[in-house]
Design a protein around this nucleic acid. Structure first.
Lengths: 298, 298
DNA sequence: TTAATAGTGTCTCTAAGACAATATGCT
DNA sequence: AGCATATTGTCTTAGAGACACTATTAA
């Protein structure tokens, strides 16, 4: 054993680790919170028209303090024998029964006092599943779970010059609606730019019905989703195995909350999908070719 | 007080919180690890030529077990009265003396066993500073700190079809060099795509001289930096107050590790900068106009 | 004068925006 | 026949790539 392998106390690494006892300084609890998105279809009275798509997120009504009766993201504490990613997959499976779906870490929220009980950080994840995969088993629990329709819109924009920079504040209205009612929150994204720095922070301006800082987490997830939709095939994880290009376009539109041009859209997604020989039937109008997600790489 | 505000034990939220005691299940330590980038100039023997830029990252040589003598990212544990962001800013200040710089959360790493002592998660941050802001005070500590030149290159690419999808593995060579020697690691990014999911994971293939999983964190940071350089003004945080467009282009090139076309580059960054009336002097060739980061919004 | 960089002009190529035209199953 | 959607064509516009040309200093 080389002398260089010994520390100031003359211990080797093995000896050091054998003697190591975790200090008794305070440690946080770490939870994962899941923003689980899916897309469903609204009922359509005209059988010849296509149903509208709706972006939905899964929430759970709290049956205990704190935030008793409020709606929260599904989640739970991370265990010492698993990664946050594994914890997220586990929670997702427990909550929805789905497995092998798109899962992405978003951000770790750690505001002091974000949980009134104790020191809890939240490592948030976003998951995209197609509604065919999951039974919408709302209400089979004493404490209910429900898919809330998502709307996220810019409410107002404020720009202020400060010495050596500016502050730009964007307020977004987050509206979540389901049979259980409507939840509304206003989340502000503030960008502070100075000579040498640029910092972005989120704050909850108002909040009616959502637990903890979950309005912030959902807002963050929607922005990540909107961003990635434009340069990845992420939205395809929201589709069933076979789908039409119009359906795919509707999903893009409901995520981005804006209308897209048909021709340009088709060109753009052309190499994200593979065409099949199947067509829609009995739709009351011209049949449409069905596509699936392209898995062979370019 | 409404009866509805009481939980299964008949407690209000206030009563619940007063009685609440944190459970004694295990909690992780949470550290922040900082990937601090700057750009320096290599010495140039020909006084008429422009010096080459180098991307550098700050590392600290460990003076204690575990990984005694290895190089690690600066960092430290998060305290219960601060956010991870505040902890990152605090560590950054302690390590470099700089303040009010660009700081961005990257990813929370939580692999089981990533720290041999105990359960430690790492919430990683990236910071960009210009080398003028900081004294390169390497060696003023018993345990040294040093700025390592960064090279990160694709080494090999493997693509494999599996049932219902594919696996794509990209191996990158991370080379860090300074007066203290050269550290080399190979990090693999694996993308596994199936019918319903796409998952990306990082693994360390080989590692010579870096502590913990820090090779992974640095690789992740470089990829984030490379990605953001193309669609934000993030690179401007690496520049001094006044700079030439050629210098800015050199910084882009050293980050992206590829040459850019001058005319196209200037068009692209035109609205990220503001021109000044100052010029370089005594450069041995035609003077160049100096620019600064544009702070007025478009 | 010349080395070396600064700065601009312009042609091409590709992708996106805009909109129109044509195609087709179903009732 | 005609509704409603499917699918393709093409003109325009914006931006990136490629490359060449001109400008300017200090030694």
């Amino acid at each position: 054993m080389d002398i260089l392998d010994r520390d100031g106390n003359g211990l080797t690494e093995r000896e050091f680790l054998e003697r190591y006892r975790a200090g008794d300084y305070e440690r946080p609890s770490v939870a994962v919170d899941m923003v689980i998105f899916t897309v469903t279809e609204a009922e359509e009275n005209n059988y010849r028209k296509l149903p509208e798509k709706e972006l939905r997120v899964l929430l759970i009504q709290r049956g205990a303090h704190p935030f008793l009766g409020k709606w929260a993201l599904p989640g739970g504490f991370v265990r010492s024998n698993e990664t946050t990613e594994q914890a997220a997959a586990r929670e997702l499976y427990e909550e929805t029964g789905v497995d092998n779906v798109y899962l992405e870490q978003l951000y770790t929220f750690s505001d002091v006092g974000r949980d009134p009980r104790t020191w809890v950080m939240s490592c948030s994840y976003m998951s995209l599943i197609n509604s065919g995969q999951v039974q919408l088993k709302a209400g089979d629990d004493a404490v209910g779970a429900a898919w809330f329709k998502v709307s996220y819109r810019l409410l107002r924009e404020r720009k202020e010059l400060i010495e050596g920079g500016y502050v730009k504040a964007l307020q977004y209205e987050l509206k979540l609606s389901s049979n259980y009612g409507e939840l509304t929150a206003v989340v502000e994204r503030t960008v502070t730019a100075t000579e040498t720095s640029t910092a972005t922070s989120y704050t909850i301006v108002s909040n009616d019905g959502l637990a903890f800082d979950h309005a912030k987490i959902i807002a963050y997830a929607i922005e990540r989703l909107r961003g990635k939709v434009n340069y990845t095939d992420i939205a395809l994880h929201l589709m069933p195995k076979l789908f039409t290009l119009t359906e795919l376009q509707q999903v893009y539109e409901v995520i981005l909350d804006k209308e897209l041009l048909k021709a340009a859209f088709r060109r753009k997604v052309a190499d994200l999908v593979t065409e099949t020989d199947h067509y829609t039937e009995n739709a009351g109008h011209r049949p449409s070719r069905l596509y699936r997600r392209r898995l062979e790489e370019l």
